[in-house]
Amino acid sequence: MKIPYYPGCTLKSTAKHFEISAIESAKKIGIEFVELPRWNCCGVVASLADDDIMHNLAPVRNMIRVLEMNRDGLVKDEKRLLTLCSMCFNTLSRANNRIKKKSDDLDILNDFMYKEDIDYDGSVEIIHFLEIIQELGFDKIEKNVKKSLSNLKIAPYYGCMLLRPKDVGIDDPERPTIFEKFITSLSAKPVEWNNKNKCCGSFLTVDNKEIVVELGNDILTDAKNSGADIIVTSCPLCAFNLDNRQKNIKAKYPEFKEIPVVYFTQLMALAFGLSKEITGFDGNFINPTKLLKSKNIEI
């Protein structure tokens, strides 16, 4: 299956290991990501003011690219746009939902974009990689597991953008299970914990580092107290706030014990027996290699 793929800016730099591990793991289950030509940044956060049309230009431009890919034969009748980053997923979805509800906004957007070949018609669907996996069936993952992760207790961290608001969320906003099913299919053990949906502080990390340190400390400590060895996420901003900011947490709370935070696709690549270059654990701030070795999992 060939599917249009939207990477997002951070997956081309600090979250490169997220992208590589996802692309290679996807191949194993028969999905080929076709990167959108000329994609642009989605804007990270959704436009919320009722009269704010301009900030929907960026998402809509990317949806026009999906139509162009279908026109140019890069994909065949595939108007679903696949995302990995939770924030890109949320922002693109919310913009798409908004213009589907407000056709006047879509007319204004199309009129403004006169240098685009095609008008957008609202026909693209934004989906997250986890949704595709669920659609294909978790047994497809199970069948490809070459390296058992059964010694590993994983805390699934949903954060905000995969679940909320309801009209874009990929699962129940309060009691999601999709990550747990995914972890189980990898042969690992999902941990039940309280803070799996709690916000990491998001972009407040730019001007309110202390708040992010407090939230991170709460979230990570809860994961460890619940017995987790490692946390998985699908958001590069959560990853930064929960992984890189552990040095700031440690500076404030010296008794704080570190815990690795990785992208779910890295563990997928690991379970599928893919190479070190693909799992990319060197890209994580807290490198999980030592932990994995202690659980008898070879990298």
Partner: peptide
């Protein structure tokens, strides 16, 4: 801060 309005290109 780019909002992809494309005004620069125009």
């Amino acid at each position: 801060r780019c909002v992809s309005c494309n005004t620069c290109t125009k």
